[in-house]
């Protein structure tokens, strides 16, 4: 085909619809337009780059606001312990019961580079609202009962001073009761341990992470009083309760979680973010292509196909000499 012959036009169908589809799922707009090869290129390249980055970052890289540090635990722990040792435990317990309704941090500008990946990033905005909602609190004696399947560990010391750490799985049932020192949680754990079926009496302070959080599991910690008939010394049941997909996917991480991620991943944390940023920015090109067609034309012209007039024009390169006949609509 020579440079003077008409270039085939790209049928963009409804370009606005194609752009919206391309925003929601990279490449979807091109599939709608019947541009299968480009749809595959965009879909595979952008989504795999995005998924790779997310996987490297433990799926916790999408957040619009940096989680704020709520309290300087290390510094204040030491100070409080010195100033008022009796109130220290109460204070610490209250802090443990604090939910994610804390001061929100600075804007995370990288989020806006990730947004063009559409369906895989926009829900983060709504998940953030759910996460910071006043109802998303850790379970405490003042709140609801717990009846859950759990997998965890029972740590205790027996009467002879031997320490045990037993992996357990089963059902935990806890409800608020009026105890000797005010309201506390009381209940049982029934399930299987190393030596068969076990039943554990539970009572006292309970710490269970809020229902909505960035991790797939909620951590639970409760005092264990008896194992069968045997009284336990320093008995503690720690367990994990799985969150539903909607309650962890694209939920912003808390400050401590993000610091741990930084420590675990090192340089790869930033690298993972860069992958998701680039994926988002590349999808802007794909969206524009779905809306307006290819930027330079249908195909790349060889040097022979470039006309002598264009060759003489110093501002014209072989690329700019190609047809740009695609029009939206």
């Amino acid at each position: 085909m020579s440079a003077s012959s008409p270039e085939p036009k790209v049928d963009l169908k409804n370009p606005i619809l194609a752009a919206v589809l391309g925003f929601l799922i990279p490449g979807a707009g091109h599939f709608y337009q019947g541009r299968t090869f480009k749809g595959i290129v965009y879909c595979v390249c952008i989504l795999s780059m995005f998924a790779w980055g997310m996987q490297m970052g433990s799926w916790q890289l999408i957040y619009r606001l940096e989680p704020a540090k709520s309290f300087d635990f290390d510094f204040d722990d030491a100070r409080f312990r010195q100033l008022d040792p009796e109130r220290f435990d109460d204070m610490r317990q209250q802090l443990d019961q604090m939910g994610p309704t804390r001061a929100r941090g600075k804007t995370e500008w990288g989020y806006y580079a990730q947004v063009p990946v559409g369906l895989f990033t926009v829900p983060a905005f709504f998940q953030e609202e759910r996460y910071y909602a006043p109802s998303n609190q850790p379970v405490s004696p003042e709140s609801q009962s717990i009846d859950q399947q759990v997998v965890g560990t029972l740590d205790y010391v027996d009467n002879e001073g031997n320490e045990f750490s037993v992996p357990v799985s089963g059902t935990i049932q806890l409800s608020p009761e009026e105890g000797e020192f005010g309201r506390e949680m009381e209940g049982t754990f029934k399930g299987s341990g190393e030596d068969g079926e076990i039943q554990v009496q539970l009572r006292g302070n309970v710490r269970l992470d809020p229902p909505i959080g960035a991790n797939r599991y909620r951590n639970l910690r409760v005092n264990a009083i008896t194992l069968g008939e045997e009284e336990l010394i320093d008995g503690v049941l720690t367990a994990q309760i799985s969150r539903s997909f909607l309650n962890w996917f694209l939920v912003p991480p808390d400050h401590e979680g993000l610091e741990k991620l930084h420590a675990d991943l090192g340089k790869k944390f930033t690298l993972a973010k860069v992958f998701t940023w680039i994926a988002g920015l590349l999808n802007i090109l794909a969206i524009w292509d779905a809306f307006a067609g290819p930027a330079y034309g249908f195909r790349m012209l060889t040097r022979k196909e470039v006309s002598p007039e264009q060759k003489q024009d110093p501002e014209s390169s072989p690329e700019t000499a190609t047809t740009t006949s695609q029009n939206p609509g």
């Binding site: 480009k38 390249c45 590349l282 290819p294 034309g297 695609q326």
Partner: peptide, 17 residues
């Protein structure tokens, strides 16, 4: 990834991309 996506946004023909 960058090369493929950028080039795909410039041209339509598979071979050119």
């Amino acid at each position: 990834g960058i090369s493929l996506v950028y080039s795909a946004s410039r041209y339509e023909e598979t071979d050119s991309v």
